[in-house]
Amino acid sequence: MFVTSAYAQSTTTEGAETHDAAAGEVHTETGVAHEGGHGSGVFPPFDTSTFASQLLWLAITFGLFYLLMSKVVMPRIAGILETRGDTIARDLDDAARSKAEADAAIAAYEQELAAAKAKGNAIASTAREAAKAKATADRTAVEVSLNNKISAAEARIADIKTKALADVGAIAEETATAVVEQLIGGKVSKAEIASAVKASAK
């Protein structure tokens, strides 16, 4: 109340007119109606003479507002919200469908990848098998031919050896004949030489 008293104090210096105004203000602060030169002097919200006019205009304006709201504005906002809800739902559906498609594509891709891998493996193993088989065949063929050659060579060796051994007898007989002729200067029969060679060869 410092402010109020200061105000009242200072207004006394400005004459009676403003002092009255200050008093009027203090009165209204406490809720008491005052005769401030405003017509009827009743606290305005309780002035029943204005009620009829206020009720009429409230009915007109609020009724109009209600009609505008219920017929124009609210259906429009409801429409906007519904459209948006539908759009969002449709977009979500689209997104879900796209996701399903993408998933299917991924699955197909992986399937194809697996198939390709399997095929690759099959080709590789076939090639490996074929190569292995060919190598085996080649080796077998080489071995066979080598064996043939070996056996042919062995046969020839044996042949040569037999021939050589046979030749060795003949040479020995000839040599023995020549040696004996030279040593003793006489002729020795072929049969004696052959038996002697045979005996020494044993």
Binding site: S49, T50, S53, Q54, W57, F65
Partner: peptide, 20 residues
């Protein structure tokens, strides 16, 4: 009965105009 268009009526109209 007094049904005058007053400043209260004016602001009722203004309220409707602004809000609507």
């Amino acid at each position: 009965i007094d049904f005058s268009f007053t400043n209260a009526s004016l602001f009722m109209v203004a309220t409707v105009v602004v809000a609507a």
